[in-house]
């Protein structure tokens, strides 16, 4: 069973047909990069996977998206439960104006975890997994805003890890960061793929080739090509893909 299985997905903002008949499967522990020119629908597709687009007025979706075999748009699905399974990291680091500890503990607390020892343990684990523990263990009570941008982004990753998701969605997670922080995030993705299935949107071709197993190329709302990353970057089947990855447009 695929971890993510999108079948014949069409998506509209109002009348605007944003995603056209998308079929895409992701297996467990794979890292999949979504690439394509600005406005092609990468973020829109990503946000369908944790139903973030539900928050926008006037959208509609047809087709099915299964995550671990479960139809996530079925009426019986609780969105908060889904979002525990499918974590998200955003383009701009968005830590809450709370302490470092409270940031990581947030997801547990809002999901009803009261056991203090458990929360402490999970916070530590998550920060370790996000390669941030060493830098913050002395200042857990300090504001998250006091961290550097790169640290803030890893904090946001730790925050997502704390609720033990199966899938992590990342929308250009390093685009606001300096090169060193970017490398850290990329290393982190390599570590995380042992335990998580990751879908990452990126505008950076090198990044896509460095971090991902498979790459999906979107263009004008269509999934043009989806294959092993090495294949996409060395031997793409479609001219459009080739043009894009060689930088001829986009």
């Amino acid at each position: 069973m695929s971890t993510i299985d999108a079948r014949n997905v069409d998506f509209y903002y109002g009348n605007f047909h944003t995603l056209k008949n998308i079929n895409l499967e992701v297996q467990k522990s794979e890292v999949v990069a979504l690439i394509g020119p600005s406005g092609c629908g990468k973020s829109t597709f990503l946000r369908l996977l944790n139903r973030m687009n539900d928050l926008i007025d006037g959208v509609s979706i047809t087709g099915t998206i299964l995550i671990n075999g479960l139809d996530i748009y079925a009426t019986s699905v609780r969105v908060d439960e889904l979002r525990k399974e499918v974590g998200m990291v955003f383009q701009k680091p968005n830590p809450f104006p709370k302490s470092i500890f409270d940031n990581v503990a947030y997801g547990l607390r809002v999901n009803g975890v009261k056991d203090k020892a458990l929360i402490e343990q999970r916070v530590e684990e998550s920060l370790k997994s996000a390669a941030l523990w060493g830098e913050v263990k002395e200042k857990m009570k300090k504001s998250a805003f006091a961290l550097s941008l790169g640290q803030q982004q890893r904090l946001c990753i730790a925050r997502a890890l704390a609720v033990k998701p199966k899938v992590i969605l990342m929308d250009e997670p390093a685009s606001a960061l300096d090169p060193i922080s970017t490398t850290k995030i990329e290393d982190l993705i390599h570590e995380l793929k042992q335990d998580y299935t990751i879908v990452i949107v990126t505008h950076n071709m090198q990044q896509a080739s460095r971090v991902s197993d498979k790459t999906a190329y979107f263009y004008l709302g269509e999934l043009i090509e989806y294959d092993k990353t090495t294949t996409i970057f060395t031997n793409p089947q479609k001219l459009s893909t080739q043009n894009y990855i060689t930088g001829r447009f986009g």
């Binding site: 928050l55 998200m88 997801g107 809002v110």
Partner: peptide, 24 residues
């Protein structure tokens, strides 16, 4: 972005307002 960050962790809208948006 702060609302999205909270909702994406499985918080309800009310929790998001109470714990993140209102304090800010």
């Amino acid at each position: 972005a702060y609302r999205e960050g909270s909702l994406a962790l499985g918080a309800s809208k009310l929790q998001t307002i109470r714990n993140v948006v209102f304090p800010m």
